[in-house]
Design a protein around this nucleic acid. Structure first.
Lengths: 219, 219
DNA sequence: ACAAGCAATTGTGTATACATAAATTGATTT
DNA sequence: AAATCAATTTATGTATACACAATTGCTTGT
């Protein structure tokens, strides 16, 4: 594996997991010493992070971890809604009925997955990821999928802002199940509407439970 | 201006204007000699182009100019539709009536701009760009605008594939005028529908007039 | 003649040295 | 004492040298 890939993966994970908080300066010299590689691969990693939106150039000099303030959450979710609603529509038109019917069954029974035994809720998030992957595969659109992928980087980061209490997760699972069912039924209108409802609920839950952080806006 | 910026700008323009055709290998050594800078800024420029989707890593070794085949035009326009329809909706909800009414008037009279005196159609394209900018400003969503900006890079490239005959451009101007009017009227449904119609017409025109190139697909 | 292996060349990955620009600190002057 | 200018320091931008991997071509053996 290339050194630049390792540096990128390390920094990416550090930012996603909020070990590097917004506003942290990413100095090339400091990072090259901390990660044990020269500045060249560090520069490449920082360029990738900047292109991804996880970091941004500081006025004239240096790079800093980009911030996601609650003020911009609604903007993020507007883009998410545009992409995911259309993706759900297309999946309803093109997807395989049985695939999404199976996902519907699993999601409808996902309440059992959300227990105190699994504080990271990995079971639920894995299932939600399966639905996302199935939609992507059914859509079969490179450009749309790429845009969704770029977006999800920020969504993972945002997820840490809210407290995912079991009640909300069970509701979310039901909403996901509704989306899967609409796609299985080949109904794009309902699939899009169910996605709209789900995203609105998710956003309002986030805004109501997230801590009142005030990191600088996303440039 | 930094050498990496100049290298990026040069390569970007060369790819957009099809001076570098899809599949062209972008060797670091060759480019550093041709552009008169060392490999380091070349690497940074290539990284930016790759992130943008104008270039892509060749299996294991090197970077090549990415291709846009007609097979993928529909995918590109699906993403475009998702983003621009939503943008039109939001602009209708938030935009300033007078701004878009003024744009409507100019677009409705754009037929006179499309003359044989202006073979590059710069007058029309400038006006279309004004509408795009007004929509962006009205939407006021950093993430959505960024996604649109990323997309337009590819659209500019694709435009060169089709022959923009005056009849189609006059139709396009009328379609744009319809979008502007719907936004001015604050009607998101009509704004979205008019955008859908316009994009469908544009895509079908492109597919019917574009030369039968067969560059390799976008990986 | 064809195939396989080895060598040579070419190109990318990484490290490091040097140049340059910006920020900070200290000193001097008002 | 405060403000401004200069100098020093620090960090980024660029160039280049070195290491390594891959591909290509040549040679040799079957």
């Amino acid at each position: 594996m290339r050194a630049s890939d390792r540096a990128y993966a390390t920094l990416h994970a550090d930012i996603i997991n909020w070990r590097l908080v917004p506003g942290t300066t990413l100095g090339e010299v400091e990072l090259s010493e901390r990660l044990g590689v020269s500045r060249t691969p560090i520069r490449e990693a920082l360029a990738r992070l900047t292109a991804e939106g996880l970091a941004e150039p500081q006025s004239g000099r240096g790079t800093v971890v980009s911030g996601i303030s609650l003020d911009h959450l609604d903007e993020l979710f507007e883009l998410r809604s545009a992409l995911e609603c259309r993706a759900a529509e297309l999946a309803a038109l093109r997807g395989d009925r049985d695939t999404f019917l199976e996902l519907y069954r699993k999601l409808a029974n996902a309440g059992g997955l959300i227990t105190e035994d699994d504080p990271s809720r990995s079971g639920y998030y894995r299932l939600a990821g399966e639905l996302d992957s199935a939609v992507e595969a059914a859509v079969g659109n490179h450009y749309l999928n790429q845009a969704l992928k770029n977006l999800r980087v920020h969504l993972v980061r945002v997820r840490r802002l809210g407290k995912d209490n079991p009640a909300r997760l069970r509701d979310a699972a039901r909403e996901h199940a509704a989306i899967a069912l609409a796609i299985a039924n080949g109904n794009p209108t309902v699939a899009s509407a169910a996605t709209t409802v789900h995203l609105d609920n998710s956003l309002r839950h986030l805004l109501s439970t997230a801590p009142d952080i005030s990191s600088e806006p996303h440039s």
